[in-house]
C-alpha cells in the first residue's frame, strides 16, 4: 500500500488559557488512504474540528495553542514545510468545508468575489468570465437552482443550506486530494444532502480524493464512509470499518452513541442514562482497522 494521503500520529493539543492549561487532544492517531472516505464521529467538543484545523495549519496560528505530534500529508512531513508552501496547500490540494457556513463566508463581499478568490488560488491567471462560468457550474453541481442570483448575493441573503452548498462547491472547486468536511450536511434537506454526498463520492472515485468526514449524523456516516473513528474527550476510543462499527459496536461510548440515535420508525427520544462509566476505556480497534495493520 502506498503512503496514506494523511497520517496523524500521536497528535496532542492544549490551550493555554488564563485559568490554566486545557488539554483538548490526548494523542490521537489516524490515517486516511488515497481515495478513502473516513468518518470521525463523537461527542460535541471532543476535538473533531480542531483536528481538521490542525491538519490545515490554522490552529498553529493561534498563540494560545500548544500542539505536538506528527502530521504527514502525501508522504511529506507538514511541520517541515515552509509556512508559505504550507499555506499554499490550503484551498488547492487540501480544502475544508467549515462547520459553520454562514460565518465562514465573508459578510462584506458577494459570493462571487469569494468564489473567484478560491479559483485564483489554484489558477492565479483566471479571468472574470471564466471564473464566473466555473462558479456557476460548481453551484449547479450542488443543486443550487439560481446560481446567478446566489453569486451576486451576500451570505446573509442566502439560506443556511445555500451557504453550506456554496462552501461545499468552493471546497471542491480545485479538485483537492484531501477534503476535510466538517459537518457538511447539517443545514441541507435530506434529498440535497444525498446529492452532495454523491458529488463527494464521485470526486473520490474520479480523482482519488481522500475525505475526512466529520459528522454527528450517524445515518449519513453509515451511508458514506468506508471506515470510522469514534472520538471521545480528545481520545480515539474505537476504530472500525463502517460495517463492523454499526453491526458490532464494542466500546461503551460507541454503544451509547448508537443507542441515542432517534429512529425514523419512532419509539420516542431515547432515554440516555447519565452514566458515563466506561466511556474513557482504552481504544478498541476492530481487526483490519488498526493503524499498525493497515500501514504495515
Amino acid at each position: 500500500m502506498s503512503a496514506p494521503t494523511l497520517k496523524i500520529e500521536n497528535l496532542k493539543l492544549g490551550f493555554k488559557l488564563w485559568s490554566g492549561m486545557v488539554e483538548v487532544l490526548h494523542g490521537i492517531s489516524l490515517h486516511i488512504g488515497k481515495g478513502e472516505r473516513v468518518a470521525l464521529v463523537g461527542e460535541s467538543g471532543s476535538g473533531k474540528s480542531v483536528t481538521a484545523r490542525i491538519v490545515l495549519g490554522m490552529l498553529q496560528e493561534i498563540s494560545t495553542a500548544r500542539i505536538s505530534g506528527s502530521l504527514n500529508f502525501e508522504g511529506i512531513d507538514l511541520d517541515k514545510l515552509k509556512p508559505r508552501d504550507r499555506h499554499h496547500l490550503r484551498g488547492t490540494r487540501m480544502s475544508m468545508i467549515f462547520q459553520d457556513p454562514t460565518s465562514s463566508l465573508n459578510p462584506v463581499y458577494p459570493i462571487f468575489t469569494q468564489f473567484r478568490e478560491v479559483l485564483a488560488r489554484a489558477n492565479p491567471a483566471i479571468g472574470e468570465a471564466e471564473a464566473r462560468m466555473k462558479a456557476i457550474a460548481a453551484l449547479a453541481d450542488v443543486s443550487i437552482n439560481e446560481p446567478e442570483r446566489v453569486l451576486d448575493s451576500y451570505a446573509f441573503q442566502l439560506s443556511g443550506g445555500m451557504n453550506q452548498r456554496v462552501m461545499i462547491a468552493m471546497a471542491l472547486a480545485n479538485n483537492p486530494s484531501l477534503l476535510l468536511a466538517d459537518e457538511p450536511g447539517t443545514a441541507l434537506d435530506v434529498t440535497v444532502q444525498a446529492q452532495t454526498l454523491k458529488l463527494m463520492s464521485d470526486l473520490v472515485e474520479q480523482h482519488g480524493t481522500s475525505v475526512l468526514f466529520i459528522s454527528h449524523n450517524l445515518g449519513v456516516v453509515r451511508e458514506f464512509a468506508d471506515r470510522v473513528y469514534v472520538i471521545y474527550k480528545g481520545r480515539i476510543v474505537e476504530q472500525a470499518t463502517t460495517k463492523q462499527l454499526f453491526s458490532d459496536p464494542q466500546h461503551p461510548y460507541t454503544r451509547a452513541l448508537l443507542s441515542a440515535v432517534p429512529r425514523i420508525t419512532g419509539g420516542g427520544i431515547p432515554d440516555i442514562a447519565e452514566d458515563t462509566a466506561g466511556f474513557l476505556d482504552p481504544l478498541i480497534a476492530h481487526p483490519g482497522a488498526s493503524e499498525k495493520e493497515r500501514l504495515a
Partner: peptide, 8 residues
C-alpha cells in the same frame, strides 16, 4: 458596524 449588524 455594517458587517457586524448582520451577525447572529
Amino acid at each position: 458596524t455594517r458587517s457586524e449588524r448582520e451577525e447572529g
